[in-house]
Design a protein around this nucleic acid. Structure first.
Length: 168
DNA sequence: CCCTGATTCGC
DNA sequence: GCGAATCAGG
């Protein structure tokens, strides 16, 4: 099972939502929790609702470089993203099902709605541009995390222009 | 013993 | 890059 962009997106989504590696692995299928954790690490994620133990391997047979002159940004904490389930209506498939992990397509908005740990968890499902992960509505919301909006309350003209150009 | 994530290590 | 094995904590 290869890690496609879609798979990775889903992984990041569920991981950010607070699901455990085992839960994610179970939902995605074809992968084990180890695989999920390993991928999470390679993605630069990791470090979340678990007590980070920097003091591991104390005396164990796990050799590790203790000298750390510079603090590496391996552990970057991100704010918890809470999607608004009521801000936009989820798309209901013709089959009567919501847009779930299994039914979501690459041209559907993958914005998580509801509790990922619950059975009613689904995605926005609004049509998104081919290759895009979110619809226009959620795409903007997804572009908040790694920026401190306190410094830059203004919008991004360039980005908007780019979008307009792309759309039109 | 069950769970969790973190890191290492072979492929 | 991938994931099992392993490590470490709750």
């Amino acid at each position: 099972m290869a890690w496609t962009d879609e798979r990775v997106e889903l992984l990041k989504t569920l991981w950010a939502e607070g699901l455990s590696a085992a839960q994610i692995a179970n939902k995605m299928g074809g992968v084990t929790r180890n695989a999920v954790i390993g991928k999470v690490h390679r993605l630069g994620l990791s470090g979340r609702a678990t007590p980070a133990k920097p003091q591991r391997g104390c005396g164990a047979s796990q050799p590790r470089q203790e000298e750390a002159p510079v603090a590496k940004p391996a552990r970057q904490e991100y704010k918890t993203v809470i999607p608004e389930p009521e801000s936009i209506s989820a798309v209901v498939l013709d089959s009567g099902d919501l847009t779930t992990v299994s039914t979501i397509k690459n041209n559907m908005c993958k914005w998580p709605i509801g509790d990922p740990a619950k059975d009613d968890f689904h995605f926005c499902g609004q049509p998104s541009a081919m290759g895009k992960s979110y619809c226009a509505h959620h795409a903007r919301l997804a572009f908040q995390p790694p920026q401190r909006r306190e410094r830059e309350p203004a919008r991004r003209p360039a980005a908007q222009i780019a979008q307009r150009r792309a759309a039109g």
